[in-house]
């Protein structure tokens, strides 16, 4: 016993180092393997508060670009609205009467990263605004990511520029689906894998979200095909997709809630059993 205590006292520095290194290694591995890393994340009141106050200053510097983006989006929506074929003359905007499956909320990005291989965003809405895990996040130009952690006032978004991200996507012209991943090489490109070799893949075609996920509505823009090649096995294409979004410059985003998620999920668990 005496010897054990002596050993511990003699090597206390090394043992402390081992302990702390072990803890941090465990945290690292946890953040790499699980879909949700529970303990260490920036969606808490301290970091969220600091980011928010920093953001309230830096916001002023890109007001101009944000305004342009908003005007562009308004233009798009207006042209959609007035070019509708059977335009109703008494078009009334009534938000309470919206019978859609999807509910939209606006949020502001507090922190954005795109240089590491695991990128996350922070937004200024949280459980208080009834935002929960697995809600989708888009901007006016396209897809951003999925909510992966929430606190009372803030939420963390798993960006599509994250090697853990995997999103159902398809070609716009046909219904060939694949999954969207990121190879951590460039913040402008993501990869669409598992597209069947019978699909008519052409450079310049548009990629949109697929209808198979319960997170995003079908048809949200992602990007256009830049290059593509057959897999080693020869059965599927791997497509390099150039994003419509500039992921390095994101201001305001929309959070999508699918009101039917629970129904879909319960249906899926029923069939699995």
């Amino acid at each position: 016993m005496q010897q054990i205590i002596n050993f511990v006292i003699r090597n206390k520095t090394f043992l402390l180092f081992l302990l702390l290194f072990g803890i941090s290694l465990a945290l690292t591995i946890q953040s790499h393997s699980y879909h949700k890393s529970k303990y260490i994340n920036s969606a808490n009141f301290l970091t969220g508060g600091i980011y928010e106050s920093a953001n309230s200053v830096s916001d002023y510097f890109n007001l101009k670009t944000q305004n342009t983006i908003l005007v562009e989006e308004n233009k798009q929506l207006k042209s959609l609205l007035y070019n509708k074929e059977n335009t109703q003359s008494n078009w009334v905007l009534d938000s309470s009467n919206s019978n859609g499956r999807f509910k939209f909320k606006t949020a502001k990005v507090l922190k954005n990263s795109y240089a590491s291989s695991k990128n996350y965003l922070n937004i200024n809405k949280g459980e208080k605004d009834s935002i929960q895990q697995d809600f989708g996040v888009i901007s006016s130009k396209g897809i951003i990511g999925i909510i992966d952690n929430t606190s009372r006032n803030y939420a963390r978004v798993l960006s599509i520029l994250n090697t853990k991200s995997q999103i159902n996507a398809q070609l716009k012209s046909t219904n060939h689906i694949g999954s969207l991943i990121w190879n951590a090489k460039s913040s402008e490109y993501v990869q669409l894998t598992d597209i069947s070799k019978f699909a008519p893949v052409k450079v310049g075609d548009t990629i949109v979200t697929g209808g198979q996920s319960s997170i995003f509505p079908q048809g949200i823009l992602i990007g256009s095909i830049d290059t593509f090649e057959l897999d080693i096995s020869g059965d599927t294409y791997t497509v390099n997709v150039k994003l419509f979004n500039d992921m390095t410059n994101i201001g305001h985003v929309y959070v999508i809630e699918n009101l039917d998620t629970e129904e879909i999920k319960s249906l899926e668990t029923d069939t699995n059993e």
């Binding site: 702390l20 953040s31 260490i40 808490n44 590491s116």
Partner: peptide, 20 residues
């Protein structure tokens, strides 16, 4: 630094090694 930049424990691991 890890908590702020959502990186798991990579900064903690490298900082503690450096100190050692």
């Amino acid at each position: 630094v890890d908590i702020f930049s959502d990186s798991g424990g990579v900064h903690a691991a490298s900082a503690v090694t450096l100190a050692f």
